[in-house]
Design a binder for these strands. Structure first.
Lengths: 344, 344
DNA sequence: CTGTTAGCGCGTTCAA
DNA sequence: TTGAACGCGCTAACAG
């Protein structure tokens, strides 16, 4: 088995020097259009393929961006990836995707691999961020954080307006007469969850809503965990007329729990989600009578687009000031919320 | 900004030669355990990181596998990826994921990138396979096809037993008394769709089911396209009592169409899916009263596992005989099928 | 516009 | 067990 042809082989076949052949193939520098044709012809005949590896070794640029996603099966993430791809692909950059499944070991492993492979940049979407990772990144390539960010604001960040989202939900519930609202937030290690909890605690009184720590739980962002959270809240207090869940999947868990206790939604209990994960055209018409969550819509594609732009900016200007980009959310009123009616 | 430390820097700091340091870091060849410690210490102090790029250039192995997925938001695919990762990760290989969205341009682009980056192998899941791609792959690294495969059996393949799946559905419908069954298959360019259509045509008579080409449509594997297909079938024939759709999402489209025409499922029309996409614990309890599709369950994780094993095998033995692995399916009876009852 | 030259960082002979 | 030397394939000066 012969080795793959390299630029020297092409040059030899074209009867020309290596560097001219290289210029012809890469498009950099001056090459006579006539000789360029000859070189391309020779390359085609040989089945020559440029080695991105050698190029990277030489230039320290890999034209590659690693993107870490917490959970690929959650429909909001593919949209973000797509948005990022839309801006990176035209720049000749390839997105390398990793599904971390919220596993910090996989997270570390992938970041390591990307560093070893000279990734030009990293986009971390909704990652839990142990110090080990941020430490690694501190000396590494440009990194942009999406949705969650590490503590010291040392990195570029793009995310939705969490405060506005919570306030919109509170306003909505308040108008419907809710006073006792259970809150299930995401875990402590999520900056997003911390922001939202802070917003809830700060804003609740302004909307005439009781802010009682007993009614505020922190759970993982998933169906099962928040379903259990709902069980706890409903057991703990008979006065709750609404529950704010931390995302749409989790809200479904809350609804399931409510129903299993004989509570109707929204007649007996109002439930809100967050992120609009089910607002896909397909879901829309899928179950005509399914619950239409009251939720906060996120500009998913735009989040991806802006993250990629921020990354490109930093690749070009590594010393630019750290950017923090907050994108507007959208309040979506569905049929899982209604007028408050005391439970007991 | 100084350049990143390399093996020479480490060697210098350890007071040792480059090659010894290299051996210490890579674990290849003999190194005194004492000097090894010293080298590792020096590396740590310098923040040294091995360059996968240089290593790949030197060895022609990148410890990287590219995996192409048609549609990442379809829940069956993450499972396949996970299965593959389970066997590849312990071998020190990294999976690089690409969502092709059924777009052959993206497909080609990613394959090209992977070739240029010396991927050790490729896994193509449910890809439509224009000749250009298979031609590219023919001279490339080991490739394994999943679900769909190119025409000449020149590549390793793993997929579910399509014939058994269709027969199981036919048997199920036949027992329920269905004679006029509409069939909506996947597109012509999908080997899976061709296999299933062939199985349907061959087996229908054996089950006392009419095989009329007028009742057999080929459509894209999606909600909208198959919903339209269902409209066509239902308009075309008043005798149809059941429709076999080509996957679960598509089946939902068929059901939606039926309902919009005032047909109840399964009382007036039985509908079957294929792939069990909604059979996730979360969906199970999500909508208590949602339709439970009668469908064919696929061994998703196992498909990924076997694909990865096949790939490893071929990487180690490039000349091994082409393998074709057919995995058993599972018949799942739901509540979208019932006794046949004439429509008109 | 073209050719010459010198590494990028590493793994791997081969001798010592 | 260690060290010296070479080259993987390419780009980027620089000189012509």
């Amino acid at each position: 088995m012969k080795r793959a042809p390299n630029i020297s082989d092409v040059a030899a076949r074209a009867g020309i020097s290596r560097s001219t052949a290289a210029r012809a193939m890469s498009g950099n520098g001056y090459v006579d259009s006539e000789t360029k044709k000859i070189v391309e012809q020779a390359a085609r005949e040989l089945g020559y393929r440029r080695s991105a590896i050698a190029r990277t070794l030489r230039t320290n640029r890999s034209d590659t961006v690693g993107i870490l996603i917490a959970d690929i099966s959650n429909p909001i993430f593919p949209r973000i990836v797509k948005g990022a791809d839309e801006v990176l692909a035209p720049e000749g950059m390839t997105l390398l995707l990793c599904n971390t499944e919220g596993d910090s070991v996989k997270q570390m492993a992938f970041v390591q691999k990307m560093l070893e492979r000279q990734a030009d940049g990293l986009i971390l979407v909704s990652q839990s961020l142990p110090e080990a990772v941020t430490a690694l990144l501190a000396g590494g390539p440009p990194s942009v954080f999406v949705n969650r960010r590490p503590d010291p604001d040392a990195f570029d960040y793009v995310g939705p307006d969490n405060v506005a989202g919570i306030e919109a939900l509170l306003a909505h519930l308040s108008v419907a007469g809710h006073r006792h609202v259970g809150y299930i937030g995401g875990p402590e290690n999520s900056s997003t969850a911390r922001e939202r909890l802070g917003a809830f605690q700060e804003a609740a009184p302004r909307f005439g809503i009781v802010s009682d720590p007993d009614l505020q739980l922190l759970r993982e962002y998933d169906y099962g965990a928040e379903r259990e959270g709902a069980a706890e809240l409903l057991t703990r207090s008979g006065r709750i007329t609404a529950i704010v869940a931390s995302n749409d999947m989790a809200a479904m868990g809350v609804i399931a729990e409510a129903r299993s206790r004989g509570l109707r939604v929204p007649e007996d209990l109002s439930v809100t989600g967050y992120d609009g994960a089910f607002r896909e055209p397909m879901w829309e018409s899928l179950y005509p009578d399914r619950p239409q969550l009251t939720t906060i819509g996120l500009p998913r594609r735009q989040i991806g687009v802006e993250a990629a732009r921020l990354l490109l900016r930093r690749i070009k200007a590594p010393e630019a000031a750290v950017a923090k980009m907050i994108l507007p959310i959208e309040m979506i009123a569905g049929n899982t919320t209604g007028p408050a009616r005391p439970r007991s």
